[in-house]
């Protein structure tokens, strides 16, 4: 019953539609950028004579990977953090939390219901984004092989090529892997949400902190801090696009990602269980 109610409230919040709309807009802009860039690189306006980029490089699979990568690091965490941040802080501010707990429903059950729905939203959002990226790539650009080069999206340290079927299989296994990564910002923002008294504060703080941690983890000057930041492992799914997947390394990174997500969830549950509700 509580799950159905929460699902209805998520649906009516319009947050899923805003996220989906923004991602579609992003894909549209990506498509224009990708098309004009590919035109300039292959039709005369070449800046560098010595280049690996050619007409076969610019295909739908490359487009989907570019779109998914940039969307993953810059957009999806924001939507996920928004969802997590809004959950408990929003209900605290509106007074709905008191009403929900009066049904009676235990705090633990309510917590896990909210977390479960937000996680489901996260998985579906990643799947939708990935699927639409591939569809747009197929229809608007046309498929080919997936060629990856060192220095491009930091995906590989040597030139590599994946056949079309193999590349599609890699996109498929990247879906759960990338979704697991997003559980970190989700649980992190949920934790912040248990401390905040308004959804705006919780979302603002969650997104800001995510961006700070992301930037720190990207700059190699801070390499001693990297192992301690969940953002350092966020794009571990990139390893799944290598010609030879290092499964041992992938297992380590995947466990770290889930470890951070579980840690933040434990912290959030502790705070939510032990805090006093007013009103």
């Amino acid at each position: 019953m509580i799950a159905r109610l929460e699902l209805l409230r998520l649906w009516r919040s319009r947050r899923p539609w805003i996220a989906a709309g923004a991602l579609v807009l992003f894909l549209g802009l990506m498509l224009v950028g990708f098309y004009t860039y590919a035109q300039s690189k292959t039709r005369g306006a070449v800046r560098f004579e010595y280049t690996f980029e050619n007409e076969s490089y610019f295909n739908g699979l490359t487009f989907a990977l570019y779109a998914f990568y940039f969307g993953f690091v810059l957009l999806l965490p924001v939507f996920v953090a928004t969802e997590g941040g809004a959950q408990i802080a929003g209900d605290t501010a509106s007074g709905n939390l008191g009403l929900l707990l009066a049904r009676p429903v235990s705090k633990t059950r309510l917590f896990f219901t909210k977390l479960g729905l937000a996680a489901l939203f996260c998985v579906l959002l990643v799947g939708l984004f990935l699927g639409v990226s591939l569809l747009v790539g197929l229809v608007a650009v046309g498929w080919g092989e997936l060629a990856l080069y060192p220095g491009v999206l930091q995906m590989t340290d040597r030139p590599q090529h994946l056949g079309q079927q193999e590349a599609l299989a890699r996109f498929l296994i990247a879906w759960p892997a990338a979704s697991a990564s997003l559980l970190c910002p989700l649980a992190f923002s949920l934790w912040i949400s248990t401390w905040a008294k308004s959804a705006v504060n919780a979302v603002g703080l969650s997104v800001s902190l995510y961006l700070v941690l992301y930037v720190i983890s990207e700059v190699h000057f801070f390499q001693d801090l990297r192992p301690w930041l969940f953002t350092s492992y966020a794009t571990w799914w990139r390893a799944l696009f290598r010609e030879r997947i290092d499964w041992n390394a992938a297992l380590h990174d995947g466990a770290r990602v889930l470890g951070f997500a579980t840690l933040f969830t434990a912290l959030a549950l502790r705070r939510f269980r032990t805090r006093e509700e007013h009103g």
Binding site: S106, T108, H252, D253, G254, A255, R256, V257, L269, R273
Partner: peptide
């Protein structure tokens, strides 16, 4: 112990276990 406390304990244990798996020794 209440169910919430058990759930929290499980989460802590799971987090430690996952970090142990993720640690590269």
């Amino acid at each position: 112990m209440k169910s919430g406390a058990w759930a929290e304990l499980l989460l802590w244990v799971a987090a430690v276990a996952l970090f142990a798996v993720g640690a590269d020794f």
